[in-house]
Design a binder for these strands. Structure first.
Lengths: 253, 253
DNA sequence: ACCTTAAGTATTAAATAATAATACATACAG
DNA sequence: CTGTATGTATTATTATTTAATACTTAAGGT
């Protein structure tokens, strides 16, 4: 990624982006040397890039600790994204409707390569823990939303994905057997939904339905998260599948 | 901004950022020539920057129209921001609580220079219109949240802000008289809240309370939006001020 | 309080890597 | 089908970035 046979490629810009991407969920504040370590860039390169990003308002700098943080500008970019994606505008009112009618946490997920990314979330009142997951990426094969979206693709694509896409063990019960994941996806194709349990979080049931485009393929899915303490999978399907499908039906993929 | 007496400033990176910032609410998809027009950069500069951003996954390119769009990476940056800001984690559960108890749209706003930026929103079921406002920036003086945050600052700062910060007329009823805005801010200091009407949107009442830090100054505020069709300002204060103050009290500024 | 080490900041010569000009190709419209 | 506009490709030139290093400030241990 550093050197390409491409005379339009501006490596300086790529280096600057690398700085931005060094920040994530578990790296919320980075010093100059942290950035050097995380990006693999030269010390002086990091110095110049971070300095420029700071002047341009893309990085906050704590004058005491001299550490860098993401700035509000990062939210502004998300704002631009939201307006650029017509699915968001179509989905939001439907999700609000569902959330109020059913009182459960509901998310919009989109396919992003071999991951899903959450693009909207309406948390319910039982969501005690601070859970900003908008913008979070998860391996598609590990998630109900990813599988249900995959299930709308061709057999060849499904096989290919099951064979090569990443699978990450997040809980002791995470399904890592690729054949079984394949079965789950093919079941989802039959059922029109996918339900998982304990995959990313213990005691979490996840039910997802696809938002299909005109070609029948889904790049978007709606997903709800339910605590498995009180109910089992069958009860979740029983209770929430119908309203969930009503919700997806109202969204223009 | 193009040329600085600063040998650490990497202008190439700044040019690349300019491309990203060319996208907003009303510019969701830009062609190469659009980008040239909006950024003021050379055609070939835009070509190289956009190309690089595309390869780096920061810009989507429609193969048919050859237009560029924001990519999912823009959401990912927002995700990193969320985790970097401790106020978000503190505020989110409180906002959820309020939203469920009161059923009204509630937002978190933060001061960002002379603007406010919305960093969280929980829409209510009456929010028909697609309203993703997270990341939206508005002139602080025009908003209840901005005024109530300002009201926690010194008189000197308030005067300075009233004199020099931007004021934008968004509706026929938007308050543009700077003296009156000053009065509104000083009233907010006495009251501990600020209420406005018809400022950014007609028939919208906005009630906001500050989240003060240990020094008594607020960089954050909570704000609710209520339709003025059914109720008037007094009724809004009567009904929602107490729960709103309870909410802000629970947030660590 | 001092010394030692690490981290951050500033400077500069060298040359790479970005630039801008322009030519070429493709799409679009009348 | 022709003309115009928009997007793509190429290249010589040099301005800009680079990397090395010196300097300064902060942090940590005894």
């Amino acid at each position: 990624m550093e050197k390409k046979q491409d005379n339009l490629y501006v490596s300086t810009l790529a280096r600057g982006l690398k700085i931005l991407r060094a920040f994530d969920e578990s790296h919320v504040s980075l010093s100059l040397t942290d950035l050097v370590a995380r990006t693999g860039l030269e010390k002086s390169a990091v110095q110049r890039m971070a300095h420029t990003l700071h002047l341009e308002g893309m990085l906050e700098r704590d004058p005491n600790t001299r550490r860098f943080h993401p700035s509000h500008a990062w939210l502004q970019l998300a704002y631009a994204y939201y307006w650029s994606d017509p699915v968001i505008a179509s989905a939001l009112p439907k999700l609000i409707e569902f959330s109020h009618a059913n009182g459960e946490t509901i998310n919009l997920a989109q396919m992003s390569g071999d991951h899903i990314i959450y693009s909207l979330r309406l948390p319910n009142h039982r969501t005690h823990f601070a859970s900003s997951i908008v913008g979070r990426r998860l391996p598609a094969l590990n998630t109900a939303a990813g599988r249900v979206m995959l299930s709308t693709r061709s057999d060849a694509e499904i096989s290919e994905a099951c064979a090569s896409w990443p699978v990450v063990q997040r809980t002791p019960k995470t399904l890592t057997d690729r054949a079984e994941i394949g079965n789950s996806i093919r079941a989802a194709r039959q059922d029109g939904f996918c339900i998982t349990r304990d995959q990313m979080l213990l005691n979490e049931i996840s039910l997802s339905a696809p938002v299909k485009g005109t070609d029948g393929v889904a790049h978007t899915a709606v997903q709800i998260s339910i605590s498995a303490i009180a109910v089992n999978e069958d009860e979740v399907v029983e209770k929430f599948l119908r309203p969930l499908l009503d919700t997806t039906a109202g969204i223009l993929g």
